[in-house]
Design a protein around this nucleic acid. Structure first.
Length: 648
RNA sequence: GGCGGCGUAGCUCAGUUGGUGAGAGCGACCGGCUCAUACCCGGUAGGUCGGCGGUUCGAGUCCGCCCGCCGCUACCA
């Protein structure tokens, strides 16, 4: 008898270079909510998350900190697991790419594809950036030999190298994406992927030399280790027990793979399915890439100091509101899901969290439960009265909303799903207002009052199930206060007669104490939830000798003219005066400075750089500027100096 | 520059295959209720649905152009 297919859901495995932040927390919380939703609906779920530990970068960071790499990754993996547990993430497997079974999978896949010719040995001649772990086609590199991405010097590599025949799968990928509209979601990402593939797929190098941290190329250790993305993507396969057991298909293929939008088009929607096609394995059902959090209109970045740690945010909310930590954590989860960025990016803010907390959780959900239970205790001694049933109109509404919530959750649209769930709360509040059970009691119509309040109880019970994917601990607390042992499964949640006469309710207790208005503390002493400062932005590189430095000729130049370079968006053509000589250089600062802003300024320029042709212009040197998250910030002498002054 | 997308009330956004007078939440103001965590309910807010033109009996909803913003991509020496 074939076992039932488990609903297999994954997050990416996270780089262990940094601890969890609201970005990785978003992916993981969304995955957890999807997993819990499927479980509530009665499916057997297999939920995978984990850590990516084989990257050379990880090895380097560990070395810089003077910690054995294995110890470093052990500690970081533990930090991730701890954070996820604290955020009520209920994963089934936590995979680490340093596990032996994963390395076996990587080696086996590599062998199989090599045997069938989808991985072939060629040679790599070209430029390689050690920092970015990326190869560059010679067409992208000019005489300066600097990395197109990070600007650091490239290394020339001429060595044997294995390639994956990605190009062979171009048309099949297109066909699959075209035939399966839900394969890549949301649609923006699908279009992006199609655009990416349409530009033509090149075979990709899947081995790397220069490091011994990672999975060695099987049977050919001279060729180094397997490319970290090739390695990392296979974690999804490893976790099913492929190679270890025949019935791994009870999990494979993944039903839903979640990730941030940055790693969807190129990796998960192109390389990954191509690898699976090569292995002749079924493809994932659905790939979903969510947007990013924006903080203060800017991307999160360590150097901007706007990186939030989820647990610190939740803990500070707990303290500010007097809310128990598990419920504050759930409130954080609620906020993540309610405001979840889908197509585009969305703003994350503590103010937004507080507004949601007070409005949706304290005033709506919490208060609705509390007022219902209070009246039940006051009027009925905390027991469900005889003969109570929900009015037909309301019962229909409850069932209809429950169905809408399910639709939205199924579509990974939690903002919509939660909005639909909250319709129930609004309906109950309006119903109370119209029916006024407190007046009915004064009039002696106990039966009718009981009827009205019963609807509130049923609504609260239903809501415990509807919010469970987002707020599991809160859901349990609602169920506890209602005196029902556990949160009802989805199929029973809409039962309108679930609470029999005589059923005993617990004492009401506010789950979300209202957050009091801040005591006009504008100059607030550094909010406790403010992110822990992380270590310096870019790690310092290897040392060089003073003689190395002396090879650079840097001089102060005066900008005498500046104009945009036609058909480019980032380039300015600068005319410089350097010690009586006039030079032209091209600088990639057009997004940060207008020509007006730079003319007349004095800037340091590397003058003995080999000239390069850029957009038809000969650039005779390189402007030096600070790089702040990709934005250029000009450097100027402390006071005006003679043009051509030497910098050393 | 190429491709994709967006631009709807102060703010955040919903708006299905084009069709009675354009919506929700938050904030603000006014009123009501009092069971409840000063909660909840109702009302008000006069938004050229980015601009111009077109298709149509009729367009926020389709087409073209323009402006602004975002993403991917190219260019960043």
């Amino acid at each position: 008898m074939p076992r039932m297919k488990r609903y297999y859901i994954t997050t990416p495995i996270y780089y262990v270079n940094s601890v969890p932040h609201i970005g990785t927390a978003l992916t993981t919380i969304v995955a957890d909510a999807c997993a819990r939703f499927q479980k509530r609906r009665g499916r057997t779920v297999y939920f995978l998350t984990g850590t990516d530990e084989n990257a050379p970068k990880v090895h380097r960071v560990a070395q810089e900190r003077g910690v054995p790499t294995q110890q470093f990754v052990d500690e970081m993996a533990e930090a991730f697991e701890g954070a996820w547990r604290a955020l009520h993430i209920e994963y089934d497997v936590f995979i680490r790419t340093t596990e032996a079974r994963h390395k076996q999978v990587v080696a086996e896949v590599f062998r199989r594809l090599r045997d069938k010719g989808d991985i072939y040995k060629g040679s790599y001649q070209g430029w390689y950036c050690v920092s970015c772990e990326t190869f560059f086609a010679s067409s992208k590199v000019d005489e300066s030999r600097a990395c197109p991405d990070c600007g650091k010097p490239l290394e020339w590599r001429d060595e044997p190298c294995y390639y994956f025949r990605l190009s062979a799968y171009e048309s099949r990928l297109k066909e699959h994406i075209a035939a399966n509209p839900h394969f890549i979601e949301p649609e923006v990402r699908r279009n992006e992927t199609l655009g990416f593939i349409a530009e033509g797929l090149q075979d990709i190098a899947v081995s790397r030399t220069g490091t011994d941290w990672g999975v060695p190329v099987p049977d050919d250790p001279e060729s180094g280790v397997v490319y970290v993305w090739f390695d990392a993507l296979l974690n999804y396969l490893t976790a099913t027990g492929w190679l270890e057991r025949d019935d791994y298909t009870d999990a494979w293929p993944p039903d839903l793979q979640l990730m941030g939008k940055d790693i969807l088009p190129r990796f998960h929607a192109t390389i990954w399915p191509a690898m699976l096609m090569a292995l002749e394995l079924p493809l994932p059902e659905r790939l979903y890439g969510h947007g990013w959090w924006i903080v203060n209109k800017q991307k999160m970045s360590k150097s901007l100091g706007n990186v939030y740690a989820p647990l610190e945010v939740a803990e500070s909310l707990a303290q500010a509101a007097g809310c128990e930590t598990p419920y504050a954590v759930d409130a954080f989860r609620y906020y993540m899901l309610r405001e979840m960025p889908t197509d585009s990016d969305a703003e994350f803010s503590l103010e937004g969290l507080e507004t949601r907390y007070n409005g949706d959780l304290a005033n709506d959900l919490g208060n609705m439960l509390h007022r219902t239970l209070s009246m039940m205790h006051r009027y009925f001694g905390g027991r469900v009265p005889d003969g109570a049933r929900v009015d037909a109109g309301l019962a229909d509404l409850f069932a209809q909303q429950a169905a809408r919530v399910a639709d939205a959750y199924e579509a990974v649209d939690f903002p919509r799903g939660l909005r639909e769930a909250w319709q129930i709360i609004g309906a109950v509040n309006r119903y109370y207002d119209e029916q006024a059970p407190w007046t009915l009691m004064k009039q002696g119509d106990t039966t009718r009052a009981g009827q009205v309040l019963y609807a509130g109880l049923i609504a609260a019970r239903l809501l415990s199930a509807l919010v469970e994917p987002a707020m599991p601990q809160v859901a349990r607390e609602i169920a506890r206060q209602l005196g029902v042992g556990e949160v009802p499964p989805w199929s029973e949640a809409s039962a309108m007669d679930a609470l029999p006469a005589g059923h005993a309710l617990q004492e009401p207790k506010p789950i979300f104490p209202r957050l009091q208005a801040k005591p006009e503390s504008k100059p607030s002493p550094a909010p406790p939830a403010q992110p822990t400062p992380q270590q310096g932005a870019a790690p310092m590189q290897d040392t060089i000798t003073i003689d190395d430095f002396k090879r650079l000729q840097i001089r102060i130049a005066t900008v005498v003219a500046a104009e945009p370079v036609p058909k480019s968006t980032k380039l300015l053509k600068l005319t410089l005066e350097v010690g009586g000589e006039t030079r032209t250089i091209v600088a990639g600062i057009a997004e940060d400075y207008t020509p007006d802003q730079i003319v007349g300024k004095q800037i340091p320029v590397l003058v003995n750089l080999q000239p390069a042709l850029i957009r038809g212009i000969v650039s005779e040197g390189m402007m030096l500027a600070a790089d702040v998250d990709g934005k250029a910030v000009l450097l100027h002498p402390d006071r005006e100096v003679p043009s051509g002054s030497i910098v050393r």
